[in-house]
Design a binder for these strands. Structure first.
Lengths: 206, 206
DNA sequence: TGTATCGGATACGCCGGTGTATCGAACGGA
DNA sequence: TCCGTTCGATACACCGGCGTATCCGATACA
């Protein structure tokens, strides 16, 4: 069995190494940004040399794709959990907003990294194509999640779920970016909270 | 009069050179992004060597500040023009959305550049401070513009104008980023249009 | 225990940008 | 016309990352 299973065998340290590289990359991107992060940086942080990197990825973009997949899956799962049992609240819309924000308010870093990558994709067709594919999957799942939730709650939408999904993602991104510069009045209500409620109330009818 | 007017004299080619550098910078940022744009790149595009650059700016960030000021002033002026006479429309809200979008839909590049810079500022306190200052000015002017318009139209807001301004800016940013990847259904309605109408209708009462 | 493959470290040559110090041409005022 | 100032070009020394080719220890399997 020399060149027998040319696709399956490669799996011993690989997996663990890739995982460590992804962690290191996420941290590095969060700290200095995607563009500014050198392959060297990422490897150093993970305790590797570039040799390890090029042994698993061909480019930084390829690594990002892997990272995107991992993080998105995690976030969708989290959101789904949070919307579970929402139909038993008396104001399900408010509850949904509340619950989702508790998670996402906490950690803005991934949104920012992801946003920066979208910007990067704006100038790199290949990256854009890859991102589009991953994003489409995310969008489909989020749409399903919204339709499902609104059905359970017994409210109908005045806007197609697909479009609503896009708007929510956009708003979430936009607010995150906004708040880098402008934290708003200290005691004031959360910007995203206000916006989401305003938007959802308008997008829902019984 | 040798070292007499140490602040006033410097002004012959300077002004024109700076202007050309700003133009070149905007183009370069649009094309390759802020982070990826080297000082060298910008100068080449403007037909200068780095000598010219360092003679007018100390850093790329300093140049960006100048650019931000210039572009923001232009955009605010444009918006103000477009909201003029809006009170004579029978659906002023729809008209406002319509008119503003005609301008901004056309050229997304500045939004993207600006967004990328916000991301950059997230990791660079000094940049953040500068940006915060400029942004505050923009925010104040936009708030005034909104208050003014809603007064003329005779509708009152269910949300403070200042907060509405923030939300609008966030949404505008978010949508722009969103649309890099996801142009939405081809024949479908503009995402920003939908979102803005939804939001403004909810934020306004007579 | 031996051995073939795997995975990451090392070493190499290359490129392009950085910021500073210096120079010289253009320009404007008297 | 001449002189002083201004502004941008030039030259210099430096740095850090890039991607590849090669090597060698670790590991699994017979």
């Amino acid at each position: 069995m020399t060149a027998a299973d040319p696709e399956k065998r490669p799996k011993r340290r690989r997996e663990a190494t890739v995982e460590r590289l992804l962690d290191a990359a996420l941290e590095t991107f969060a700290e200095v940004g995607f563009a500014a992060a050198s392959v060297e940086d990422i490897c150093r942080r993970g305790g590797f040399t570039r040799g390890a990197f090029y042994s698993s990825f061909r480019t930084k973009d390829e690594l990002f794709a892997a990272l995107f997949t991992r993080e998105t899956a995690r976030n969708l799962a989290r959101t789904e959990e949070q919307l579970a049992g929402i139909e038993s609240e008396q104001d399900p819309v408010a509850a949904a907003v509340e619950r989702c924000l508790t998670t996402f308010r906490a950690d803005r870093t991934w949104v920012l990294v992801q946003t920066e990558y979208a910007l990067h994709a704006a100038r790199h067709p290949a990256a854009a194509a890859a991102l589009r594919e991953h994003t489409a999957a995310l969008h489909a799942q989020l749409t399903a999640l919204i339709e499902n939730a609104s059905a359970r709650v017994g409210l109908s939408l005045t806007v197609p779920a697909g479009q609503l999904a896009r708007i929510l993602l956009a708003l979430h991104d936009g607010v995150a970016v906004q708040q880098i510069t402008d934290a708003g009045p200290p005691g004031g209500p959360d910007l995203e909270h206000t916006a989401l409620l305003l938007l959802l109330r308008a997008a829902v009818s019984d």
